[in-house]
Design a protein around this nucleic acid. Structure first.
Lengths: 238, 238
DNA sequence: GATCAAACCTGATAAAAGTCATCTTTTTCG
DNA sequence: CGAAAAAGATGACTTTTATCAGGTTTGATC
């Protein structure tokens, strides 16, 4: 598949406001802008592979990307799903290690690549930006600690409910008394997020649907009763 | 319990070489040194609590500390165990959030407290140090990603074996053909590391012992056959 | 629009691991 | 030292969840 380039100035990017580049001084932003390469990816294409060396930073301009690890038996675990405004692959870049995960496009995506050198240059000469990156990374780490504890002690049912609520927060489109999760996930991907078998997800989703907690809209899930879902996730005691 | 203070110059600290402060210029190190307070803690004492606001950074000079989260039912999940040279509580400090975990002394500890202001001052005016901190944080994050995937798809047996090997790496004291894990962990704590029930850990440890993979030395575990343990952890296919 | 593949779904079964109850051993502390 | 508490161990039982095997539906492609 040929790489399809596109171009958009960072200053004009719709997602600048959601990004860590927001607030960067014009000079630094233009440095990033002048060195970036923007590429359109189709669903299923890979952005980077586990075990390879990062050469720069990816900044999402459109679409959705899953970042996952494969275990020995080939089962996926999805670490996170990137949406417009998110950085991709910064962990390995900043720790100067190989990628520990693979990134694959879930929904057709537009992604800008910023070479390592340009990114590090801005990082180095701009302590405020560096500080913001550190803050974001550490925040992200807190989320992972939360996930670890959840994975260790919650049942699959609780985890599925909790993850649906999380997806609702990140990708939710508010409707009247309900929220559509704007993310077309296969049952298999959802299982890889929750850390369980596909069949188990299917069964539990049917139950949640039967209980009126969710409904299906094409490939997407609508959260009908977030409160009951939170109860299933054991986030509310009552 | 009264706080017992002690004092040791950072420059003379045995663990400086293992610490992120290693390589700091004399001026910055003395700034840290002049503002720190060093306290001796007894086993069972808490260093900080989940839900409170960090006011500085802890730097381990002696002993062992567990950092854990409690779930709704009161079950612990141990995120990591800090040893001399390690920083403690930096995540919440750097992300400017509340602590998401509690730190409790496992083995009598000596810990230095560096006030937020002093730490941030050095961080701000020393890009190289900042860079090293970022690198360390991102490396730590990689370990957590690994743990997430492990927790999601490995059996308790595999996880126990993998964690024993990990503990061996971090706290191992090499003997002749075997390694003693220099960390007196209760079965309950080990269960909180692996993310399982205490009884399950007890049963599996007995099995490992019966199979000649490990032996018990007081409260400590000796790894007799790391290779077979790795096989149990599903790290080696053969 | 027929064909093939992928995704989705359902039921049966088995394995893994949690829970509970009880008992023994070790540790702590007055 | 001796009592009480904590930690460790074991067995019986139950629940959860994975796995396997067989279906149907959906969607893409020629």
């Amino acid at each position: 598949m040929a790489k399809v380039e596109f171009n958009i100035a960072c200053t004009l990017c719709d997602h600048l406001k959601d990004s860590l580049f927001n607030g960067l001084n014009p000079e630094d932003l233009s440095r990033i802008n002048n060195h970036k390469t923007c590429i359109q990816y189709k669903k299923g294409q890979n952005i980077f592979y586990e075990g390879t060396r990062p050469t720069g930073l990816y900044c999402m301009n459109g679409g959705k990307v899953k970042v996952f690890k494969n275990n020995v038996q080939g089962k996926e675990f999805i670490i996170y799903i990137a949406k417009p405004g998110d950085f991709l692959g910064y962990r390995a870049l900043l720790s100067e290690e190989f990628y520990q995960a693979t990134a694959t496009v879930l929904e057709d995506a537009k992604i800008c690549f910023i070479p390592k050198e340009s990114f590090f240059e801005v990082l180095q000469k701009n302590p405020t930006f560096m500080r913001r990156v550190v803050q974001a990374v550490c925040h992200e780490m807190g989320i992972m600690e939360e996930k670890l504890a959840e994975l260790a002690h919650k049942s699959v049912r609780e985890r599925l409910a909790a993850n649906l609520l999380m997806l609702k927060e990140s990708y939710g489109m508010e409707g009247e008394g309900s929220t559509l999760i704007e993310l077309a996930l296969s049952r298999e991907d959802l299982a890889s997020i929750v850390g369980t078998a596909t069949e188990t997800v299917i069964r539990l989703l049917s139950e949640f649907k039967a209980d009126g907690l969710i409904s299906f809209e094409g490939k997407k899930i609508r959260v009908l009763d977030a409160r009951k879902l939170a109860k299933q996730a054991d986030l509310i005691i009552a």
